[in-house]
Simulated assay, not measured.
Amino acid sequence: MRARVTRPIVVTGTDTGIGKTVFAAGLAGLLGGHYWKPVQAGTDPEGDSETVARLSGLPRDRILSEAYRLKLAASPHLAAREEGVSIETGRLAIPEVKGPLVIEGAGGALVPLDEALLFADVFAIWGAPVLVCARTGLGTINHSLLTVRALRALDVDVIGLAFIGDPHPENARIVPKLAGVPSLGRLPWLDPLTPGALAEAMRTHIDIVPLARAL
């Protein structure tokens, strides 16, 4: 279903490589919105914007250009330093678009952009609601709760959790309960990963009604 979501939604994760970009692509497609990755670190073989363009089903003009596009697949602070780039918060202002905007952070919430600034600090500056993507497997309880608490310590509004991976009923039960955050469900691993398969999985497994209620 399509929920009436008009505010930007920030998608962050408990770690890197957990499927956050795939989820962000599916969410942007499900909402019929726009997608923005403000800081891309790593462009070989492609950046996350290209991945989302392939998988979301959105027109290419709904994929907004990055504020910073760095070649090295590393923490943004290191990738920027290697290229002699200074990441400035002024260039990270949220773009104005009509309708929903899905913003994807880099790696986990506490990834540094320079020697003093974390991505979570930028989330706090934005004042936008945040959705946390989490693995389903071992270790996710600790990582998920740490992420939620770190964001709340900065007065960031955490509006939902989305699990990614194989079923784990106990983790799916206990993490939202302890975090005090609603779960949107679980996006399974998809093989093959195609735009059609992702769209169907999002419609089948992800409930975005909690997002609409929170916004």
Results as ranks from 00 to 15, higher is better:
Pro8Phe: 01
Val10Tyr: 01
Val10Ile: 14
Thr12Asp: 09
Thr12Ile: 10
Thr12Tyr: 01
Gly13Ile: 07
Thr14Lys: 01
Gly17Glu: 08
Ile18Leu: 15
Lys20Asn: 09
Thr21Ile: 08
Thr21Cys: 06
Val22Ile: 15
Val22Gln: 13
Phe23Ile: 13
Ala25Gln: 03
Gly26Val: 00
Gly29Phe: 01
Leu31Trp: 06
Gly32Lys: 08
Gly32Gln: 15
Tyr35Gln: 03
Tyr35Lys: 01
Pro38Asp: 09
Pro38Leu: 14
Pro38Met: 08
Val39Leu: 12
Gln40Arg: 02
Ala41Trp: 09
Gly42Met: 11
Thr51Trp: 04
Val52His: 03
Ala53Met: 05
Leu55Trp: 12
Ser56Val: 12
Ser56Asp: 07
Gly57Asn: 04
Leu58Trp: 13
Leu58Arg: 14
Ile63Glu: 02
Leu64Cys: 06
Leu64Ala: 08
Ala67Val: 02
Arg69Met: 12
Leu70Asp: 11
Lys71Asn: 14
Lys71His: 15
Ala73Gln: 02
Ala73Lys: 08
Ala74Trp: 02
Ala74Phe: 02
Ser75Tyr: 15
Pro76Tyr: 10
Leu78Met: 12
Leu78Lys: 06
Val85Thr: 04
Ser86Asp: 05
Ser86Pro: 00
Glu88Ala: 14
Glu88Gln: 11
Thr89Phe: 03
Gly90Ala: 09
Arg91Trp: 08
Leu92Ala: 05
Pro95His: 02
Glu96Phe: 14
Val97Phe: 00
Val97Thr: 14
Pro100Lys: 09
Val102Cys: 14
Ile103Val: 15
Ile103His: 00
Glu104Ile: 02
Gly105Arg: 09
Gly105Tyr: 05
Leu110Pro: 03
Asp114Phe: 03
Glu115Asn: 09
Glu115Met: 05
Ala120Tyr: 01
Ala120Ile: 12
Val122Pro: 07
Ala124Met: 07
Ala124Thr: 07
Trp126Ala: 11
Trp126Pro: 14
Pro129Asp: 12
Val130Gln: 00
Leu131Ile: 03
Arg135Glu: 09
Thr136Ala: 07
Gly137Cys: 09
Leu138Met: 11
Leu138Phe: 15
Thr140His: 06
Ile141Cys: 04
Asn142Gly: 09
His143Lys: 06
His143Asn: 10
Ser144Phe: 12
Leu145Val: 05
Leu145Ala: 08
Ala150Asp: 11
Ala153Gln: 15
Ala162Thr: 06
Ile164Asp: 06
Asp166Ile: 10
His168Met: 06
Glu170Asp: 14
Ile174Phe: 00
Lys177Thr: 15
Ala179His: 01
Gly180Ala: 10
Pro182Arg: 01
Leu184Gly: 04
Leu187Asn: 07
Pro188Asp: 14
Leu190Asn: 13
Pro192Trp: 11
Thr194Val: 10
Gly196Ser: 12
Gly196Asn: 15
Gly196Lys: 15
Gly196Ile: 02
Glu200Ile: 05
Arg203Thr: 08
Thr204Trp: 11
Ile206Leu: 13
Ile208Asn: 02
Val209Cys: 07
Ala214Met: 11
Leu215Met: 14
Leu215Lys: 00
Leu215Arg: 00
